[in-house]
């Protein structure tokens, strides 16, 4: 009896020890990022001003602001979304609402996993080979955005499919039994009840797209351009590439400038991600059935 108790106590402390170890490991993953964010804010914060955000760079990119890069990123993201959201939602609808459990479906799933897993620089090579050269879009927003769109397609597909699947099958059955076609069922019941979840995924995609660098390096983003893009066939600056350029390619950039650019970029990305997460939490709390 007493022995058993002693053993229990030892087990208790072993368990407590492991619990602490795992907590420590979790913190070790999160802590560096908190520190990095702190450093970025501390050293990049002073660089940020209205002037920084709203003027083009000057003096060989060692001074001035980041306006063309900001606007360029917006262009790239918007065009990429226009291309990827319809295709991604269609693919998710197929997989969730139509696809039988067969080889084709498994092939599509495997293709999606690989689109997400192929290195970004390989997507860049594809963009160069297909859009810049073969389709003759040249290095342009169009080519860069299409490359980004294909790269982030899995994000839309996976998140859309997940939110479609939160709509219970009973609702679909009820509609089908009334004589509604599959498409009518999707339009009247499935989409209205998953649209906010889809939107969450789209916001997530915005955040992914805005931060990518490698896929746009050779397809449409340029180191420096004093002009704002006027059409999708123009080249453009972009925030992510700008950070890379002023940090590695341009001499004598004052230190606070790259920190400022990094801070703006990561703020954009995290804000979008946070928005997506907040939206999801809000949706989870609001039940319609």
């Amino acid at each position: 009896m007493f022995e058993a108790t002693a053993r229990n106590r030892r087990n208790q402390s072993v368990e407590g020890g492991f619990r602490l170890l795992f907590l420590w490991m979790t913190c070790m993953l999160i802590l560096p990022v908190v520190l990095i964010l702190g450093v970025l804010i501390y050293r990049g914060g002073p660089a940020i001003s209205y002037e920084f955000l709203l003027t083009p760079p000057t003096d060989g990119m060692t001074a001035g602001g980041i306006l063309p890069a900001l606007i360029g990123t917006v262009w790239l993201v918007v065009v990429a979304l226009l291309a990827s959201v319809p295709v991604g939602v269609a693919a998710a609808l197929y997989l969730s609402e139509y696809a039988p459990d067969n080889r084709l479906t498994r092939a599509i799933n495997l293709a999606i996993i690989n689109l997400a897993g192929v290195p970004s620089i390989v997507h860049a090579l594809f963009g160069v080979g297909a859009f810049v050269i073969f389709f003759r879009f040249g290095t342009s927003i169009l080519a860069a955005s299409l490359t980004l769109a294909i790269m982030t397609l899995p994000v839309v597909i996976v998140s859309t499919r997940e939110s479609l699947q939160t709509v219970p099958r009973a609702f679909r059955e009820a509609c089908w039994n009334m004589g509604a076609t599959r498409w009518q069922t999707i339009r009247k019941v499935v989409l209205p009840n998953s649209i906010s979840g889809i939107l969450t995924g789209v916001i997530l995609e915005v955040s992914r797209t805005a931060g990518e660098t490698a896929p746009i390096m050779f397809t449409g983003a340029v180191f420096f351009s004093p002009f704002l893009p006027q059409s999708v066939l123009d080249q453009t600056m972009a925030m992510s590439l700008h950070l890379f350029v002023i940090q590695t390619q341009v001499p004598n950039v004052p230190e606070h400038v790259p920190f400022g650019v990094a801070l703006v970029l990561i703020s954009m990305v995290l804000a979008m991600n946070g928005l997506s997460i907040a939206f999801r939490v809000y949706l989870r709390g609001r039940k319609k059935w």
């Binding site: 197929y94 599509i108 690989n114 689109l115 080979g129 397609l153 597909i157």
Partner: peptide, 22 residues
Amino acid sequence: VLAGGLSAIVFIVGIFLFIGRE
């Protein structure tokens, strides 16, 4: 929507072909 689903396969094959072509 089937075309949307197939596009994923098209893109993966396309990546291989266009990079291979270059």
